[in-house]
Design a protein around this nucleic acid. Structure first.
Lengths: 337, 337
DNA sequence: TTGAAAGCGGTACCAG
DNA sequence: CTGGTACCGCTTTCAA
């Protein structure tokens, strides 16, 4: 006794189309895929197309790629932390560029899984390529992916991983430029804001290291300044500023810089007189402050360029992994330093 | 004559695991899925697990869901325009919440496809549910999805679509609050910034309509102010301000508001004396300006709440579509209005 | 020009 | 407790 309460539409398959058109499934496949090797008469083609339209037939991607033994899916983990406009624009451009090359980009919501654990989940989808921002994927993860038929693994982050192509985003350079700039402006006691928010230390630590490196062998010092992204915490930090004796600060990025800048001014400190401030990312909004915020402009690779790398790698999976240095960092001096 | 230049690792299948463990594919499946209905001896289980580990076996999601006739994939189109921190945080929360309910969230890079065209592409993946932000999906698209076995279609946007659940984000309300606020502050000639950037008019138009509605039946007027997100264009707009006679502006969101605010001040106009400015989104950075930016705080639904809606809908696909009003808009008055 | 059939990788029923 | 096997939807030889 089956009580069917709700008549869910039975999803039409190519067999249904074939039946309706009075042909075989093979013919349906030929017609709908415009197979070049076989000639199908025009009347038949029309009947098939008509039947497909009438039934609302949509091919089943899983079945197709199961049969084909491969797909054109490029998988990236979805960012688990809110991501700035810079990186967001980069992703969009990349998706578009890969779309032009007939790949389908899919961002996988890794819901809690980390690094090599996540790699297993990604591998289940049998993508043709995987793009992994940040660190977190180890050589083991790369192996899992490759063994599952992934033809190209590309990491975009601070370091390279064995077996994967790498787009090195050298955040040290960002800190280095900032540190050098502040030093050249005569600053010697330099604070470096370290966001307290989780997930950002992958970027903040290299940036700090870069500052340290720029200052190595000089009489200048770099001091870590933990900061939560709240007005209260910025006020607290600014309140202790005079006693700290710091005469400059590299504020991780423009948002933290703006936050701190305002707090410093509220404490009666003069920027850049008493303390020079520089951010990073070159956000539009930084230009609107008084004084206009100096910043480290960051140049990401073009989406097109990365898309081409992926395509190359997919076509020749056995080639040596490419390693590119892709993060350009330039100081844009405005009024705050 | 096959010249194999590169020994690509042959992806292990459950058959390989079975062979290595000396059991059948069925047994492998039982063991690896912890099938409750069948008892497998502990030694066998160990042999199977060991073999799977050794081969680096990863199950093939497509094959599995092909056989099962369904998946737990929730598909959303990836945003094609850079998205603010508000919405980004919402997506993250949603992904996490759906992950807790054992769904896999996938953002599909629709690379150029629009609305109902895109629906067909999504349907190929046979997701169990589809979440569509914005307008653009019509009833036809919903039908395509449902006929392809999608059990829940949820739109988050300005209006409802036949057959789909709707989380109504009433951007009119944002404009309405802003308009009413400015009116109550005694302003009568109100400008409304309309971003020139593509893709934003889905939001900006309702917001404008909301302002108009708030002003209906009063002696106040709303004037459209096209604005590109550049300093030059803001300067141009500010340069013509005095002759426009406007005494207030609702600037679409906080970013455009900040841009315009600075430009107005550079023109020697007093904010809020000569012109009141209000934005929207309640960005942290707006609080840092002088004067602090008034704004319309927007409350999005909690990810958990939406995840539960999805789960309900998936469990009972035949239920009446739910329609919820989910966008809370509240004026946060600071110093610029 | 079209059809029959094998098989992609897994799952689940039924026999043993 | 375990193995054989049919089948999910689609593509692609091979024959007719």
């Amino acid at each position: 006794m089956r009580t069917v309460m709700t008549q869910l539409p039975n999803t039409p398959t190519s067999a249904d189309v074939a039946r309706l058109a009075g042909v075989s499934r093979a013919t349906v496949s030929y017609v709908l895929n415009n197979a070049g090797t076989v000639r199908i008469s025009e009347p038949t083609r029309r009947r098939v197309r008509e039947a497909a339209r009438e039934l609302g037939y949509v091919p089943h991607a899983a079945a197709r790629s199961l049969r084909a033994g491969h797909s054109r899916m490029v998988l990236m983990p979805a960012p688990s932390i809110p991501v700035g406009p810079l990186y967001g624009a980069f992703i969009n451009e990349l998706q578009w560029a890969l779309g032009r090359l007939d790949y389908t980009v899919v961002q996988y919501g890794s819901g809690g899984l980390e690094g090599d654990e996540a790699a297993r989940a990604w591998a289940e989808l049998r993508p043709v390529a995987v793009l992994v921002p940040g660190a977190g994927l180890g050589p083991a993860g790369v192996q899992v992916l490759k063994r599952s038929g992934v033809r190209a693994v590309v990491t975009l982050g601070p370091g390279r991983v064995d077996g994967a192509h790498a787009l090195l985003m050298d955040h040290d350079a960002v800190g280095h430029r900032a540190g050098r700039h502040l030093y050249e402006r005569g600053r010697r006691r330099i604070g470096v804001v370290m966001p307290a928010e989780a997930g950002l230390d992958a970027f903040s630590r290299p940036r700090l290291a870069g500052v340290r490196q720029a200052l190595r062998g000089t009489d200048a010092t770099a001091t870590e300044l933990p900061l939560r992204y709240t007005e209260e915490d910025a006020g607290r930090l600014a309140g202790r500023w005079r006693e700290s004796g710091l005469d400059a600060v590299f504020a991780y990025n423009d948002e933290y810089a703006m936050l701190l800048l305002r707090a410093l001014q509220d404490e009666g400190l003069d920027v850049p007189g008493d303390v020079a401030v520089i951010g990073a990312d070159d956000l539009m909004l930084g230009r609107l402050l008084r004084p206009r915020l100096s910043t480290v402009h960051i140049e990401l690779p073009s989406g097109r360029c990365l898309a081409e790398l992926v395509d190359r790698a997919v076509r020749d999976p056995a080639a040596e992994p490419e390693v590119h240095q892709v993060l350009g960092a330039t100081v844009v001096r405005r009024e705050s330093s």
